[in-house]
């Protein structure tokens, strides 16, 4: 069975929700692009992470270049990018992750619970989620930056409960 066969959501719908969130919250266009290889990825990133538990269990992670997060936070806080604090950057990415995670949860076929978002420096692969199964990865370009949405870690036991 392929990994995709285990995924209880349609990646196209996930892409559409990213477009909606980016358009409504940030006023930015986004377009899908190929997921960058390790050598193509920028190392200066922040990652927003939110866990979903219940009938489906996994993690939604948004890995964004720091400079994109700065632009997004400037829009959300309506301040000049240079004036933003690191707390404001993390808060803005955390809220974007929360919105994406909540709307992703709505695509799942059964009841689930959304946790509180967390923000970490560098790729999620450098953190505790490094060993998690990647169920889906989608990349998008916005304002010259590429960010990656990863859906991680649902176990077969959790997925089996959806049957």
């Amino acid at each position: 069975m392929s990994c995709h066969a285990l995924v209880p959501f349609n990646p196209l719908e996930v892409g559409q929700l990213i477009e909606t969130v980016w358009t409504v919250v940030l006023g930015c266009d986004v377009r899908p692009v190929s997921v960058p290889t390790d050598s193509q990825r920028t190392t200066n990133v922040l990652a927003g992470i939110v866990e979903i538990t219940g009938a489906w269990e996994g993690v939604v992670a948004l890995e964004c270049p720091l400079e994109f997060v700065r632009q997004a936070a400037a829009t959300m806080f309506e301040v000049e990018p240079a004036l933003l604090t690191s707390d404001q950057l993390e808060d803005a990415l955390g809220e974007l992750t929360n919105i994406v995670g909540g709307n992703f949860k709505a695509l799942l076929p059964a009841s689930a619970h959304l946790g509180l978002p967390a923000v970490v420096k560098n790729s999620v692969r450098n953190h505790a989620l490094a060993g998690a199964t990647v169920l889906e990865q989608l990349a998008f370009e916005t304002s010259g930056f590429v960010f990656v949405l990863s859906i991680l870690g649902a176990t077969s036991a959790a997925l089996a409960r959806l049957d």
């Binding site: 919250v25 936070a73 959300m76 309506e78 808060d91 809220e95």
Partner: peptide, 12 residues
């Protein structure tokens, strides 16, 4: 709201 960014958006 626990997000300052969201409070900023709504406040505006």
């Amino acid at each position: 709201d626990d997000s300052r960014a969201m409070r900023s958006i709504l406040s505006h």
